[in-house]
Write a protein that binds this DNA or RNA. Structure first.
Length: 261
DNA sequence: ATGACAACAAAATGTTGA
């Protein structure tokens, strides 16, 4: 089973790329972030005609997540629990068949948190705490679980071309990295780091200053696996070439392959 | 400290992102 995640930076702007990527990669499920539209404006028909089912958790203008899947997504949860006053659409979860069992899958758009001296940063850290609390509950099911998305976290210096440029940034501050480790330490496996120690593997290149041309990237899109999912891990791919397409998203898709057995 | 791009809402610039 192939599960992918991609921050598309507006699904309506990226519909052509999205259909091209689905056709090329043939994922069983694709988690989307930053769809930047309400549910009613999601280009559902075009995607369904291509053979994928659609669940959305949208929001006007900003944020918004979705899950596209070959099989119907069951037991759908919209929104991250733990704060009823949080109106930002950043979390969507559901269950898909995997072999004779199931996999639980979440599409995550973790807050950016910049600038750190504003209320945006405590919101990010609070959101990470809520994600950890919810994850602890999900892990108790002892089933395959994949938390996929744009975490807005650079885990380590090797995950940035120029780590010094990020030391005061909400994506790389010690507290951010510590909260990310706290999440991993619940018992999750970061898929890419389970397969390679290589530096220079990025998932985001800024639109500005020729970041793509200079390969000035960062790795902030991650798939975190429960033990039962990690046991099935068969490979991880970053679809780097997608950043070279015409009018691309600033993020590229990341995919994991899970054995069904 | 700032923001060269890009997207959005809107009608000119301002906000947000990473």
């Amino acid at each position: 089973m192939r599960i992918a995640t991609w921050n598309v930076n507006s699904v309506r702007q990226r519909l052509g790329h999205l259909l091209d990527f689905l056709k090329e990669a043939q994922p069983d499920a694709l988690c989307l972030q930053e769809i930047k539209c309400v549910d009613a404006d999601f280009p559902r028909r075009e995607i369904e005609e291509a053979g994928w089912q659609v669940e959305t958790h949208g929001q006007k203008t900003f944020n918004g997540v979705a899950i596209l899947s070959r099989a119907k997504l069951e037991d759908v949860r919209r929104g991250l629990p733990g704060d009823d006053s949080d109106e930002q659409a950043r979390y969507l979860e559901g269950v898909l068949p995997l072999g004779s069992g199931v996999v639980r899958l979440a599409s995550i758009y973790l807050p950016n948190g910049n600038p750190p001296n504003t209320e945006k940063y405590p919101y990010k850290l609070g959101w990470m705490k809520r994600l950890a609390a919810h994850t602890r509950m999900l892990l108790a099911h002892e089933e395959p679980l994949v938390l996929a998305g744009d975490y807005n976290v650079i885990p380590e210096p090797r995950d940035a071309r120029d780590p010094a440029a990020w030391v005061s940034d909400a994506l790389f501050l010690p507290q951010t990295r510590s909260a990310f480790r706290d999440l991993i330490n619940l018992g999750l496996t970061e898929a890419l780091r389970a397969t390679t120690d290589d530096a220079g593997l990025y998932t985001f290149w800024d639109y500005q200053a020729g970041a793509w041309q200079r390969n000035n990237g960062i790795r902030i899109d991650h798939l975190l696996l429960s033990p039962q999912a990690a046991d099935r891990l068969d490979g991880v791919q970053i679809a780097k070439h997608v950043r070279g397409w015409d009018k691309p998203s600033d993020h590229v898709p990341v995919m994991v392959e899970l054995r069904a057995a």
